[in-house]
Simulated scan of single mutants.
Amino acid sequence: MEKLEEQIAHLTKTVEDLSDVIARQDTDIALLQRRVQMLLEREADREAAGGGGVVIGDERPPHY
C-alpha cells in the first residue's frame, strides 16, 4: 500500500509540473501570436504604402 501511495504522490507531482509547463507555454504562444500579428499588419501597411521593391517577372530593377 505504501508503494502505491508513493507512486500516486510522484504522479501527482508530475501532473502539477506538466500543468505549470503547459500554462507557461500557453502564455508564450499567445505572446508570439500577438507579435506575429503585429508584424503581419506592419508588413501589410508597408506594402500598401508602396514600399515593396520586389521585382516581378521580367521587370527591370529601378537602377536601369
Rank of each mutant, 00 (worst) to 15 (best):
M1Q: 15
M1R: 15
M1G: 12
M1E: 13
M1Y: 14
E2L: 15
E6P: 03
A9V: 05
H10G: 01
L11A: 09
T12I: 03
K13N: 08
K13E: 06
T14E: 06
T14N: 10
V15Q: 03
V15P: 01
D17E: 01
D17G: 04
S19K: 02
S19G: 02
S19H: 00
V21R: 00
I22H: 02
I22R: 04
R24Q: 03
Q25T: 11
T27L: 08
T27Q: 04
T27S: 03
I29W: 05
L31Y: 11
Q33P: 10
Q33K: 11
R34T: 09
R35V: 10
Q37A: 14
E41T: 12
E41N: 09
D45K: 02
R46G: 00
R46V: 00
E47P: 01
A48M: 07
G50A: 02
G50N: 03
G51F: 07
G51M: 09
G51C: 05
G52D: 04
G52Y: 01
G53S: 12
G53K: 07
V55C: 04
I56L: 03
I56P: 00
G57D: 07
G57A: 01
G57K: 04
E59G: 05
E59A: 04
R60N: 13
P61H: 15
P61D: 14
P62N: 13
